[in-house]
């Protein structure tokens, strides 16, 4: 869902860039309060893993492809503040070094994927855990919804930019990403299972305990 330069008009990419700058600064501030340098490997490894995962496009319905976004994965394993920093970093590296996603629309990409997709993942996952949902079911639903939220936002941004009417773009964006979101859900659940089996992310275990106690 990396938007190229030119898809969004100036008011839209400037507005989303301003919101994202505020959101990322706030995430950095919260991370500063909650974490210290011992969490550096967790952030680095998660970013690297999501970068690699995003390169592996899986075919969708014979005519399109999708790949891991990783917002739900980072959120569930590291919490929303770190996830925001991780996804923002991945998007910035992709735009700067790999020409994947435009540089003018980087703020929009961060808003869609590192802010809103992360927030949706966080609230969905913890809401479902409170309802005593199975953790992998909660992971799948959070991941699927995070993709849908980002797809709806991209559609809105395209429409506000005058690129294409909302009524035309929203149904097809939602349709394709409903399928891509299934891939996101499966990969995210598998990666969370890998994290649990390797016992890598300490915070992840605490989240589980907190979830069960709540």
């Amino acid at each position: 869902m990396h938007i190229p330069d030119g898809f969004l008009d100036t008011k839209t990419w400037v507005a989303t860039a301003v919101i994202s700058a505020g959101a990322v600064s706030y995430a950095a501030k919260k991370s500063k309060e909650l974490l210290d340098e011992r969490q550096l490997p967790a952030l680095g490894v998660m970013s690297a893993f999501i970068f690699a995962g995003q390169m592996v496009n899986f075919p969708v319905a014979g005519a399109a492809s999708g790949h891991l976004l990783g917002a739900a994965l980072a959120t569930i394993l590291l919490g929303p503040w770190s996830a925001c920093l991780v996804i923002s970093t991945v998007l910035a590296v992709q735009a700067l070094f790999f020409q994947d996603g435009g540089i003018t629309v980087l703020g929009a990409g961060i808003f869609n994927m590192a802010v809103v997709a992360v927030a949706v993942s966080h609230f969905t996952y913890h809401f479902l855990l409170k309802l005593k949902a199975n953790r992998y079911a909660a992971t799948f639903v959070a991941a699927w919804l995070s993709i849908m939220a980002a797809a709806v936002l991209v559609s809105l941004e395209l429409a506000v930019s005058g690129t294409i009417p909302l009524g035309v773009v929203l149904p097809v964006m939602a349709g394709w990403h409903a399928l891509i979101g299934v891939g996101e859900g499966i990969i995210t659940a598998a990666a969370v299972a890998f994290a649990v089996s390797t016992g890598t992310f300490g915070q992840e275990k605490k989240a589980e305990v907190a979830g069960h106690e709540a």
Binding site: M1, H2, I3, M55, V56, N57, F58, P59, V60, G62, A63, A64, S65, G66, H67, A151, V154, V169, V172, M173, W176, H177, I180
Partner: peptide, 12 residues
């Protein structure tokens, strides 16, 4: 080995 199909947004 990644699929070379356009991604969701490109397809649209």
């Amino acid at each position: 080995l990644a699929s070379s199909h356009p991604d969701g947004l490109e397809r649209v």
